[in-house]
Simulated scan of single mutants.
Amino acid sequence: MTSGARKNRRSIRRGRALLVAPVLAATIGGGIAMSQPASAAARPDAHRFLSAVVPCESGGNPGVVNEIGAGGLFQFLPSTWRGVGGQGLPQHASAAEQWKRAHILYAQQGTSPWYASKSCWGHKI
């Protein structure tokens, strides 16, 4: 093989590497971005989002409890309620207290805690 042919092959390989590297980086980067939870994406305004969640989760009834024990406007599980500083049970707290704790949870986890009802609130925000 002549030195010119070797030089040409190196140039082709280098050119392929320059072409493949950005495509590979975009593919890997895109996969990582797509695997992030909903809360990692741009968050909607907290009050607007939570206002869309209330009718979906509780129908606006601050005293409602579902079959698995989640209660209140935002259907807090008791452990989640305590995790954001709530006392007692969410369905026994005032609506203002439930809103306060929902804002805290939203600031911590974004839309993730309410993902199960996304088919209801998703088109409202």
Rank of each mutant, 00 (worst) to 15 (best):
R9Q: 12
R14N: 10
G29V: 04
G29E: 04
G15C: 03
N8T: 06
A46T: 02
G31M: 13
R13F: 06
R48L: 15
A46Q: 06
A41Q: 13
T27K: 00
S35Q: 14
A42Q: 13
A21Y: 03
A17Y: 09
L18H: 04
S11V: 09
A17R: 11
A40L: 14
R13V: 11
S11Y: 05
A26C: 15
R48K: 14
G15I: 01
G31C: 10
A42L: 12
P22Q: 01
G15L: 11
M34H: 01
R14Y: 04
R16M: 15
L50V: 09
L19V: 11
L19Y: 03
R48T: 15
L24E: 02
F49K: 02
A26H: 03
S51L: 09
A21E: 00
A26N: 06
A25G: 06
Q36V: 12
A26P: 13
A42V: 11
S39D: 08
Q36E: 10
A21R: 04
D45F: 08
R43I: 08
A42S: 13
A41P: 10
R9F: 11
L50D: 02
S39G: 15
A41M: 13
D45L: 11
P44M: 08
R43P: 05
A26W: 12
S39N: 09
S51V: 02
V20Q: 01
R14Q: 06
V20T: 04
R48S: 14
S11K: 11
R13Q: 02
Q36L: 15
A26L: 15
R48F: 07
I32A: 08
T27S: 08
P22N: 00
R14I: 11
S39A: 14
L18S: 05
P37K: 01
Q36R: 14
H47A: 15
A46R: 07
L24S: 07
T27I: 11
A46G: 03
T27P: 00
F49H: 06
V53C: 07
S11R: 12
A52C: 14
I12V: 15
A40R: 08
A25F: 12
A17G: 07
G30H: 04
A17N: 06
A38G: 09
K7S: 08
N8R: 13
P37Q: 01
S51W: 00
I12D: 05
S35H: 10
S35N: 14
V23H: 04
D45W: 04
P37M: 06
G30V: 05
A41K: 13
A38I: 05
P37V: 04
A33K: 09
P44R: 08
A21S: 12
F49Y: 11
I28H: 00
A52Q: 03
G31D: 00
G30M: 10
A33D: 00
G15F: 01
R16S: 04
A46N: 05
A21H: 01
G30N: 08
V54R: 00
Q36P: 05
S11C: 10
R10Q: 12
